[in-house]
Amino acid sequence: MPTYNLKINGKSREFEASDDMPLLWALRDQLNMVGTKFGCGIGQCGACTVHVDGNAARSCQLTVSQLDGKEITTIEGLSEDGSHPVQEAWKEIDVPQCGYCQAGQIMTASAFLERNPNPSSKEIRGAMHGNICRCASYNRIEKAVALAAENKLT
């Protein structure tokens, strides 16, 4: 089995995996980084969203062999203490119900706000559209993204 060395959350991480192993399973099973969740396995729900070179990406759809030289950030690496403005806004608005999708929601929102720091409500809804929340916390998610964009919590 090949050995991979990926830069994850700013650190070099070495592990063995088959070439076709999805990043999601490498994170969870090889590196014990379980903040990234399995949702659907086909890239449709967003629960497994991470950042690859600063862009939101579905980790269930990326194989470890595709990621050489890429910078990967997981929910664990967004901030060490949960103080990222999006995480703070999530707490302030009390977004989660069950919480299962929230890591993916936060990763999508934070990548979006890096590209568009002053979004409209329509832009927020569009950016978050691909992330499914089974508890239907969409209104609170939108409010939290808007609050993080206002930067009132930093």
Rank of each mutant, 00 (worst) to 15 (best):
D68F: 08
C135R: 07
S65W: 01
V52I: 15
H51W: 13
T74Q: 00
L23P: 08
C98L: 10
I75Y: 03
V64A: 10
Q66C: 10
Q87L: 08
E142P: 00
I72M: 10
N32Y: 10
A17F: 09
N9W: 05
E92Y: 12
P119T: 05
D19S: 12
L62P: 03
W25G: 01
M33N: 11
L27A: 01
G126A: 15
C98K: 05
G69S: 09
P117R: 07
A57C: 12
P85V: 02
K7W: 04
A103R: 02
I93C: 01
Q66T: 14
R134S: 05
G35H: 08
G43M: 11
M107A: 10
G10L: 09
A149R: 05
V145M: 10
E80I: 07
Y138K: 05
N9T: 06
P22E: 01
Y100T: 02
A103P: 12
L113I: 06
I8R: 03
E71M: 03
N139L: 13
C101M: 04
E92N: 14
T154L: 13
S120L: 07
I42C: 02
R125F: 06
P2F: 10
A26Q: 04
Y100F: 15
G82R: 09
F38D: 08
M21K: 08
E16Q: 14
W25A: 00
L31Y: 06
A89I: 03
G77P: 05
I72E: 04
E114I: 09
H129Y: 12
A57E: 13
E16I: 08
T63S: 14
D20R: 15
T49F: 09
S18Y: 11
R58K: 14
G99Y: 03
G99R: 10
N118W: 05
P117I: 04
K11Q: 14
L6E: 06
P2C: 12
E123G: 10
Q30K: 15
G41L: 10
N139P: 00
K91V: 11
P96T: 02
R140P: 02
A144C: 11
T49Y: 07
K11Y: 05
R28S: 08
G43Q: 09
D81L: 12
C45A: 12
Q61D: 11
A26T: 07
T74L: 09
Q30T: 07
R125D: 02
Q61S: 13
G126E: 14
A111I: 05
V145C: 09
Y100R: 05
E76R: 08
L78Q: 02
H51Q: 13
H84N: 11
C60V: 07
T3A: 09
Y4Q: 10
